[in-house]
Design a protein around this nucleic acid. Structure first.
Length: 346
DNA sequence: AATCTAAGCAACCGCCGGTGA
DNA sequence: ATCACCGGCGGTTGCTTAGAT
C-alpha cells in the first residue's frame, strides 16, 4: 500500500508552535470542529500538515487537558495498567481523564521507569529484575563485604561494609523469593486465571512499594473491568485485588539486619509491625491474597490461592537450597544469609 | 559568570489498521 | 480483491531548562 506523504511536503512548517498558530487552530476547531485533519490546515490558514495540527490539538490545546504533576493515585493507576496493558499508552490514557497518551508515555519514560528500576523491578515485565548485571553487582558487593570481614574483622565493627553486605543479601533474597514465587504462582492449578496476556502476579508488589507504598489493597475500579480495559483478574466482590500486606509486613528491616552480633531471624514480632516496614514488598499478593505463612486467610474460600501454594513455595526454596547440582553461587548466598532464616519461620 | 550535563517534554516519524472507492 | 487515504499509535528525536561544576 502506498503511503501518503504528510509532513514531508515542502514549505510546511515544522517545529514548535507559535501562539498565533495555536490561536488559529483553537479558533477554527472551536467554531467548526476538526473535521478532516488533512484539510484542516488549509481551512484554518495554517502552514502545517494535518498530522501536526492533530497532535498539537490532542496533546496541548484541547480544553480538557489537565496539566501539572501527576498525583500518586495517577502514578499507581499508570503502573497498574501498564503491568496489564504494556505500552498501550492510549488505552492507559483513557483511564486518566485530562492526561494524554503522550504525557503518560513521557512520564513513564522519565520517572516511573526509573523508579521501578531502582526498586529492583523490571519496568517491562513488572517482575523482579533478574538480569545478570543487576545480580552480579549485588553478589560482588556481597563477596567484597564478606572477604573484607574475613581479613579485617574491625570492618564489621565499624558496620560499614557489613551494612552494605546485609543490604546486598536482602536484595538478592528479595529477587530470589520473587522468582521463586513467580514460578510457584505459575505452577498452580488456577493458572488459567493468569493466562490473560501480561496479567502480572507482581502487580500488587508495585502497589506496595517505595514511594508508592500503599498498604491498602489495590482497588481496580469496577469501571475498568466493565470497560474491558484490563482483563478480569481474580478479585473479591468489590473488585479488590488484595495486596499481600501479610508478607510485606514480615520483612522488618531491623529484624532482618539485627544488631552487629545478632543472629536474629525474622521473628513473629516482625510480622506484627507492618506499618513501619520500610522494605518494599517481597511477594505480591495479587491477584488474590498470597501469603507465605497463611496463618489466616482473609480471603474468600473461592480464592484461587490455596494452602498448597505455601508449601509449594517452600518446596522450591528447599529444593534450590538442597539441590546438590545447584550452582555453589546460590548455595553460597543462601548460607550467607544471616542466621539462614528458614522460610517456614517467615 | 560561563560551561557542561542531565532531565523533561513537545513534536516528529514511520508503521499499522480501518474504511471506502 | 486491491488500492489510496486517513487517523491513531508507539518510538524516537531534539530543543529547552535547571542544576552542577
Amino acid at each position: 500500500m502506498g503511503r501518503s506523504p504528510c509532513c514531508d511536503e515542502n514549505g510546511l512548517k515544522k517545529g514548535p508552535w507559535t501562539p498565533e498558530e495555536d490561536q488559529k487552530l483553537t479558533d477554527y476547531i472551536n467554531s467548526h470542529g476538526h473535521g478532516s485533519w488533512r484539510s484542516l490546515p488549509k481551512l484554518a490558514g495554517l502552514n502545517r500538515c494535518g498530522k501536526s495540527c492533530r497532535l498539537r490539538w490532542t496533546n496541548y490545546l484541547r480544553p480538557d487537558i489537565k496539566r501539572g504533576r501527576f498525583s500518586e493515585d495517577e502514578e499507581r493507576t499508570i503502573i497498574s495498567l501498564h503491568s496489564v496493558l504494556g505500552n498501550k499508552w492510549s488505552r492507559i490514557a483513557t483511564q486518566l481523564p485530562g492526561r494524554t497518551d503522550n504525557e503518560i508515555k513521557n512520564y513513564w519514560n522519565t520517572h516511573l521507569r526509573k523508579k521501578l528500576l531502582q526498586m529492583g523491578i523490571d519496568p517491562t515485565t513488572h517482575k523482579p529484575r533478574t538480569d545478570l548485571n543487576h545480580l552480579m553487582n549485588l553478589s560482588q558487593l556481597l563477596g567484597a563485604a564478606s572477604f573484607g570481614n574475613l581479613l579485617s574483622p574491625w570492618n564489621s565493627a565499624l558496620g560499614l561494609q557489613a551494612d552494605a553486605s546485609q543490604l546486598a543479601r536482602i536484595q538478592l533474597l528479595k529477587n530470589m523469593l520473587q522468582v521463586i514465587n513467580t514460578s510457584t504462582l505459575l505452577n498452580m492449578d488456577n493458572i488459567g486465571l493468569l493466562q490473560n496476556q501480561n496479567l502480572n502476579p507482581f502487580e500488587g508488589l508495585v502497589n506496595g512499594t517505595s514511594t508508592l507504598y500503599q498498604k491498602e489493597p489495590l482497588l481496580i475500579s469496577q469501571e475498568y473491568l466493565n470497560q474491558g480495559v484490563i482483563p478480569q483478574a481474580p478479585s473479591n466482590s468489590q473488585g479488590i485485588i488484595n495486596s499481600s500486606s501479610e508478607f510485606e509486613g514480615q520483612f522488618n528491616m531491623e529484624d532482618f539486619l539485627g544488631s552487629n552480633n545478632s543472629t536474629s531471624s525474622l521473628s513473629s514480632s516482625a510480622c506484627e509491625n507492618q506499618t513501619e516496614n520500610p522494605m518494599p514488598a517481597l511477594v505480591s499478593g495479587s491477584p488474590g491474597t498470597y501469603t507465605v505463612n497463611q496463618v489466616e486467610s482473609k480471603t474468600d474460600p473461592n480464592q484461587f490461592l490455596t494452602q498448597s501454594s505455601t508449601s509449594t513455595s517452600f518446596e522450591v526454596w528447599e529444593k534450590l537450597k538442597d539441590d546438590e547440582t545447584s550452582d555453589f553461587y546460590w548455595k553460597d548466598i543462601l548460607e550467607l544469609t544471616p542466621s539462614s532464616p528458614s522460610p517456614m519461620s517467615w
